[in-house]
Amino acid sequence: MEKTIVEIVDYIEPDKVYAELSHSESGGICVFVGTVREFTQGEEVVSLEFEAYENMALKEMKKIATEAKAKWKLNTVLLRHAVGAKEIQEPVVVVGASAAHRDACFKACRYLIDTLKERVPIWKKELFKNKSVWVSAHP
């Protein structure tokens, strides 16, 4: 039985993801966790703030899951993004897939995060000591 999980949450709990993706017909599970990094181009990030257009973000995340399942034979697919204020080293996004063979789950996992970053309406504001910046807003 195939399973898809798509969620926007306040906090990511990476430790629950393994049980969610585990599947008796899967030989491999690939998971990517995106976390808040201490240094961005040499400047010290104090914290981050994520905002989502939730309706649409969930719709796009479901589409991405469907696309991945059409491209590769997957048993489970998960996309979960956090919103709100995040500190350094906190997880902000987790995506993953399980499949019979590892090639499919690796490629799917990479597709999930790359496409999420391209299309899902979520915005990240980086807070530095003296300023804040909406990431990627300007060329």
Binding site: G34, F50, A52, Y53, N55, M56, A57, K59, H81, V92, V93, I113, L116, K117, E118, R119, V120, P121, I122, W123, K124, W134, V135, S136, A137
Partner: peptide, 26 residues
């Protein structure tokens, strides 16, 4: 209505319209 819309799409009164600046999730 929570889908990306191309320039030629018409807007109606009941539509949910949103401005999507460059996204930066993940």
């Amino acid at each position: 209505n929570s889908e990306y819309a191309t320039d030629n799409v018409s807007l109606g009164k009941g539509d949910e319209i949103a401005i999507i600046p460059p996204v930066s999730g993940g």
